[in-house]
Simulated assay, not measured.
Amino acid sequence: MKRHRVGLVALFGAIAFAALTQPAVAQTSASETSELIWGLNMNLLYVAIPITVLVEGILIYTVWRFSKNDEPLPTMENRRLEITWTVATAIILLFVGVASYQVMAEPMVTAQSTQQLDTSEEPLEVEVVAQKYAWTFNYNGTAANTSQEYSADNRLSNGGTLVLPANRTVRLSVTSTDWLHAFHVPGLALKQDAMPGQHNTIQTRVTETGTYQLYCAEYCGSGHSQMLGEVRVLPQDEYQNWVEDQQSS
């Protein structure tokens, strides 16, 4: 009867923990990148919870069962048990490895990915330039979205706020003009190093409109904590209007 109660308590705890973590996952899936990463996190969590409950249950039971044992016996060899947990561990590691590889191989997650996305439209390319202690964004080819011809004179640039369209593939080319920085938007699960003389690429598709906080995630000097920015995601029509307003002004 006591074992039955312990089992029910452990099962209820696992279900409650999974239920409490689910809302947090739903709130952070604002881009396809974050959806892939949090999907992997949940799959690993579903494996980790039963293992944690099992191990902790055995530990608690062992402490309680043998706490008053004044004459403990030496551990006896049990080959079946050893083979069982070795095989079980191998299966778990294989699952973790395959699940992680499938997500990390996605072009929306992998940094410096050269894999072409299956998309019917041309990705929006933005150069992200970091410098002490600010961000500049160059929208290459934005004139193709208007009646103007593309040239260096009408290439869109702005600082502080990166404006992106929702539900469109975006490719960010991150670089620096001085020393090491890091482009980091936790709400979109985006992070990439900014290095002088080098362009590091990340790509995503944001599915939720709104404003997301941008940080520098690499200590870059006395103004590091103030090197902040925003990523503002607009519906496609509002983004188009913003582009035309910026170019006309």
Rank of each mutant, 00 (worst) to 15 (best):
K68A: 13
V185P: 08
G39S: 06
E32N: 12
I49D: 02
E244W: 04
A48K: 02
L8Q: 09
V53Y: 05
V174R: 07
E32S: 04
H4Q: 11
L124R: 06
L234P: 14
H184R: 14
N158F: 02
E127G: 06
P196A: 09
A217V: 00
M195G: 04
S248G: 12
T110Y: 02
T142L: 06
S120E: 12
F66C: 09
E208W: 04
E56T: 14
V233N: 04
L156P: 05
R171S: 11
L40D: 06
D245I: 10
D193S: 14
Q246M: 14
T201L: 12
N158K: 07
G221Q: 02
V96F: 13
T146F: 00
L11C: 13
I49V: 15
Q27E: 11
S67G: 15
S225Q: 08
S249H: 13
A143T: 05
V109Q: 05
H181L: 00
I60M: 03
Q226H: 07
E121I: 11
S222R: 04
L94T: 15
L73I: 14
T33W: 11
I51L: 15
N41G: 15
R80E: 00
K132N: 14
L45D: 02
M104P: 00
G210C: 12
K68M: 08
A134P: 01
L45S: 15
Y239L: 00
P74G: 01
A88D: 03
M195W: 03
R168V: 04
Y212R: 08
M227I: 00
E56H: 03
G197L: 07
S248T: 14
N140R: 15
S151V: 08
L54N: 14
M42A: 02
A90S: 03
E125P: 07
L214K: 02
N78P: 05
V129D: 00
E208N: 13
M108W: 00
V25T: 14
F66H: 12
N241R: 15
Y150C: 02
W38K: 06
N43G: 01
A152K: 05
V96L: 13
V231T: 07
P186I: 07
G7M: 10
